[in-house]
């Protein structure tokens, strides 16, 4: 009975960790621009697809393929900001959000054109043989997903509290005009936030590709669930998105395990509706910072 619970929990934490990485990306871009970047899921797809391509097709070793795939996705993220968001920076937020939806469709179509519609498998980083922890079967790749998420959280914390760029990003999030007056280069921050989000998305993509395979549409659902995570945690609170992701992932696993798997996918969306009804600012969002 208890091992069953642990097995569900393990599943929830693994899936939740990927939602969290995607959700953090939403929050970072939102902080810099108030834009919700709906191409976030496509960063996940690009990370996985590029890693597969570099490893399987170009024959690079895994330690080279993974960083290159992340770097490639960062370039796409920067290009998206430079050529799609920046030229329209005087447009309304809604327009910018629509641009990101367009970009996501474009990236999906591009991936289909370049890599085909089929699914591809990336080998697991340390084998497929499950580890048996007193009755709970653990996929080694799950440990990678969880471990990397923890490392990312630590690095992000250090980055936002100790580095000049990180503090500048927080300043922009808090008050864009004041930050600008204090000499923060807004445009650079926006650019940087797209790069950082793309890197986090790509990392999630690379880590999850051995578990779920990778294909052009893989980012749609992950993007939506990541968005739920970000909303639940409070948009603009990267740590909130991490907690949100874990909550969404674990609730899904528990619903599938104890209630009915038919309702599993509804869980995330029920959570998002409940959050918006009762806590519009999310779990960690503060009231009273609404912009007029």
């Amino acid at each position: 009975m208890f091992t069953e619970f642990l097995q569900f929990l393990l599943s929830g934490v693994t899936v939740g960790a990927t939602y969290a990485l995607v959700g953090v990306g939403f929050s970072i871009i939102y902080n810099a621009s108030q834009v919700i970047n709906f191409a976030q899921g496509e960063f996940v797809m690009l990370g996985g697809m590029m890693a597969w391509f570099l490893f399987e097709r170009a024959g690079l070793p895994m330690p080279a393929a993974v960083p290159l795939a992340i770097a490639g996705t960062v370039l796409v993220g920067l290009a998206l900001e430079k050529f799609a968001i920046e030229p329209a920076r005087n447009a309304s937020i809604v327009t910018l959000i629509i641009i990101t939806i367009g970009a996501s469709i474009f990236l999906r179509g591009g991936a289909q054109l370049v890599w085909g519609r089929d699914f591809h498998a990336l080998p697991a980083l340390s084998g497929d043989a499950p580890i048996d922890l007193s009755g709970v079967a653990v996929n080694p790749q799950s440990l990678w997903v969880m471990g990397c998420t923890v490392v990312v959280v630590i690095l992000l914390h250090w980055f936002f509290s100790r580095t000049m760029t990180g503090r500048a990003m927080r300043a922009v999030a808090f008050n864009m005009l004041a930050a600008q007056l204090a000499g923060v280069n807004n445009r650079l921050i926006l650019m940087f936030s797209f790069g950082l989000s793309a890197a986090l998305g790509a990392l999630a993509g690379v880590l999850i590709a051995p578990i779920t395979l990778t294909y052009p549409d893989v980012g749609i659902m992950l993007g939506l669930k990541g968005f739920c995570a970000a909303i639940l945690g409070g948009l603009g609170y990267p740590y909130g998105a991490i907690v949100g992701g874990l909550i969404v992932g674990i609730s899904e696993a528990m619903t599938a395990g104890y209630v009915s798997s038919a309702y599993k996918d509804a869980v995330a969306f029920v959570i998002i509706l409940m959050t918006l009804f009762f806590m519009p600012n999310g779990l960690f969002g503060r009231r009273g910072i609404e912009r007029v």
Binding site: F8, S11, V15, I211, M221, A256, G257, K264
Partner: peptide, 19 residues
């Protein structure tokens, strides 16, 4: 048991079946 399209992990459903 059922799962959603594009699900990344189906171990909860399979654990239920296992048990």
């Amino acid at each position: 048991e059922t799962h959603g399209k594009g699900d990344t992990d189906m171990t909860p459903q399979l654990t239920k079946i296992k048990n």
